[in-house]
Every structure is written in C-alpha cells, then in structure tokens.
Simulated scan of single mutants.
Amino acid sequence: MRRPLLAALMALLLVSACSTKLNPFNWFRKSAPAETTALVLPGPEQDARPLVAQVLSMTVEPMKGGAIVRATGLPPTQGWWEAELVALPLGEDGNQIFDFRMLPPIARADVSTQRSREVTAAYQLSDFKLAKIRTITVQGASNARASRR
C-alpha cells in the first residue's frame, strides 16, 4: 500500500517540476470553435489568396524546439492549391491568428465528396515564439478554430 502511494507522489513531484517543454499542463488543448477576426494589413503585403471556406480542424502538436500548428480546411470545390497558414501580427493579449489561405482552381472543378476536397496546411512555431503565445486561432471565411494553453 505504501509503495504505490510513494510512487504516485514521486511521479506527481516529477511532473510538477518539469519545464514548459515536458509539462503536459503547458501544452495547447484541443481546438474549439472561435470567432473570426477581420484584420486587413495595409499596403502591398496583403495576400490575394482567398480564405478557405471552412476550417474543419486544428491541432497544436509539440515537437522538439517548438510546435506545429496543423489545420484542415474545406474549400467549396476540388482543385484548390498552394494552401498556407499565414501568420498575422501577434496580439497584445497573446493571441496568434493565422489566416488559412489558398488559390482557387485554374479551370472549372467538381464538388465531389467532402473528404476529396479537404486540404491540410501546417506552420512551425519556435519555442521563442511560443513563449509569448497564449491562444492560437486559425480562421477561414465562415468560421475559426482556437486552441488555448
């Protein structure tokens, strides 16, 4: 009885003493629906690619040296290409917003099934950038998904 209790206490102390990289309580949680934020950048820096119609899912996966933000979007038809998560300036509240942008098909494209239209894009964040971030939001044209620490 004492051994399992002692082992559990040791494990609890070990986890609580972990750095931010190893402590699972400091990782980002599952994404949840969020409000879209309309932010227009001035000047020629504005991206001409339209936002994806709908953001289906978003995850923040820890890795050595930082994390990977991965999002899956659903465009209206097949054939959309050059998908990218475009980072907007970091908000004062620690909210990092990404626009999920991609180019439409060059020729007419079919609608087909949802699975055949899904597109995935990812963005790598360093530990240095992650230290300032509290919330990560990926937004599309009709919805957004956010993950908080």
Rank of each mutant, 00 (worst) to 15 (best):
T36W: 00
L12I: 09
G91Y: 06
A71L: 00
I133C: 07
S126W: 10
F98T: 00
M1P: 07
A48M: 10
D110I: 06
R2H: 09
A87R: 12
Q124H: 13
L41I: 12
I68D: 03
R3P: 00
A11F: 10
W81G: 08
A141F: 04
D127N: 15
Q46R: 14
A109D: 05
Q96R: 15
Q78K: 08
T135R: 13
Q54Y: 12
V119Y: 01
A67Q: 03
A87P: 15
P89V: 10
F128V: 13
C18L: 15
R145V: 04
A67N: 03
K129C: 06
S142R: 14
A107F: 14
T20R: 15
R145K: 12
P50Y: 08
K132M: 12
A121H: 00
R101I: 01
V60C: 08
A122Y: 04
E45S: 10
V60L: 07
K21V: 13
A48V: 10
A8K: 11
V52W: 00
T59M: 08
E45I: 09
R108A: 13
L6A: 14
P33N: 02
Q114W: 06
T120Y: 02
L103Y: 11
L41M: 14
S147R: 04
R49P: 02
L5Q: 12
T137S: 13
D99S: 01
A17E: 04
K21F: 10
P75G: 06
L6E: 14
L125F: 15
S116I: 07
A144N: 01
W27M: 03
A48T: 11
Q139L: 00
G43F: 08
D127R: 08
I136T: 04
L13P: 07
R145S: 02
A122I: 06
Q78N: 05
A144D: 00
Q139N: 01
A38V: 13
F25I: 08
L125V: 09
N95K: 15
L130W: 05
I68L: 14
L56G: 00
I106W: 06
G79W: 09
A67I: 01
R2Y: 08
G43K: 09
P24H: 05
Q114A: 12
L88M: 13
A122T: 15
P24W: 05
N143Q: 07
F25P: 00
S57N: 11
A83H: 09
R2T: 10
P33M: 05
L5H: 08
G73E: 00
F25D: 06
T36Q: 02
N23A: 05
R145W: 04
A144Q: 01
P4S: 09
I97Y: 03
A141K: 08
M58C: 03
K21L: 11
K132V: 05
T113A: 08
W27F: 12
I106Y: 08
K30T: 12
A38Q: 14
W80V: 03
Q78I: 02
T37N: 11
P75M: 08
R3C: 01
R29C: 02
N143T: 09
Q78R: 06
K30F: 11
K21I: 11
L14K: 03
Y123G: 02
I97T: 15
I97V: 15
K21D: 11
R145G: 01
R115I: 09
